[in-house]
Simulated assay, not measured.
Amino acid sequence: MGEVDAQGQSQVWVAAIRAADLAPNDATRIQHNQSCIALYNLDGRFYATAGICTHAHAFLSEGYINGQTIECPLHQGLFHIPTGKPLSPPVTEALKTYQTKIEQGTVYVLVDGG
C-alpha cells in the first residue's frame, strides 16, 4: 500500500511495533533501510521522528520525554515531538517527522522508498 509525497517520491507504510508493546510516555528505536526512526507513545498517540539528534549523534529514543518534548540524552537539547521543531540550544535544526497510523493494534510509519 504505497503513496507518493509532494516531491513525487514513493512512500510506503511499514509495520513498526505492536501498539501495546510501547508504554505511554516512552520511546523506542526502529530501523528502516538506512533510516533510524524514533517512535513515541504520548499518552496513546503515536509519533515518529528521525531517530538521531540533528546536533550530534545521539539516539533520541534514549532521551527524556516531558509532555510533547524529547530531550537529547547527549547535550540536553529539546525537540517538539509532533513537529520535530527544535526548542532549545544546542539544537537548531528540526527533526524529520513521519506520519503514523494504527491498524489492528500495530503502529505503522510512512517512510520513503520501499
Rank of each mutant, 00 (worst) to 15 (best):
M1E: 06
M1D: 10
G2C: 03
G2Y: 11
E3Y: 07
V4K: 08
V4A: 11
V4P: 09
A6L: 07
G8N: 14
G8K: 10
Q9K: 15
Q9N: 15
S10N: 10
S10C: 10
Q11F: 04
Q11D: 05
W13Y: 04
A16D: 04
R18Y: 07
R18M: 10
A19M: 00
A19R: 04
A20P: 05
A20L: 06
A20V: 10
A23F: 11
P24C: 05
P24K: 10
N25M: 14
T28V: 04
R29M: 08
I30S: 01
Q31K: 05
H32T: 06
H32Y: 10
N33V: 14
N33A: 13
S35K: 02
C36R: 00
C36Q: 03
C36M: 06
C36L: 00
I37T: 03
I37H: 11
I37W: 04
A38Q: 03
A38E: 05
L39D: 08
Y40S: 04
Y40R: 12
N41V: 03
N41C: 06
N41H: 01
L42D: 13
L42C: 05
D43C: 07
G44D: 08
R45T: 14
R45P: 01
R45C: 06
R45D: 13
F46D: 04
Y47K: 03
Y47E: 13
Y47L: 03
A48H: 10
A48P: 04
T49R: 02
T49W: 00
A50N: 06
G51I: 00
G51L: 05
I52P: 01
I52G: 06
I52Y: 00
C53S: 11
T54M: 08
A56W: 13
A56Q: 15
H57D: 15
A58C: 14
F59I: 07
L60D: 03
L60A: 02
E62V: 06
E62P: 09
Y64R: 15
I65A: 14
N66M: 12
G67I: 07
Q68H: 12
Q68L: 14
T69I: 13
T69R: 10
I70M: 05
E71K: 11
E71A: 12
C72F: 08
C72I: 09
P73H: 11
P73E: 15
L74E: 14
H75G: 15
Q76I: 09
G77T: 01
G77H: 09
G77C: 09
L78Q: 14
F79Q: 02
F79S: 00
H80W: 02
I81E: 01
I81T: 02
I81F: 01
P82R: 05
T83Y: 09
G84T: 04
G84Y: 06
K85C: 04
L87R: 10
L87G: 13
S88E: 12
P89D: 15
P89T: 15
P90K: 12
V91D: 13
T92V: 12
T92C: 11
A94V: 09
L95M: 11
T97Y: 03
T97P: 01
Y98A: 10
Q99A: 06
Q99I: 00
Q99C: 00
K101A: 08
I102D: 05
I102P: 06
E103R: 12
E103V: 13
Q104K: 12
G105A: 03
V107A: 03
V107D: 13
V109R: 02
V109F: 08
V109L: 00
L110I: 06
L110W: 09
V111L: 02
D112Y: 04
G113Y: 03
G114W: 07
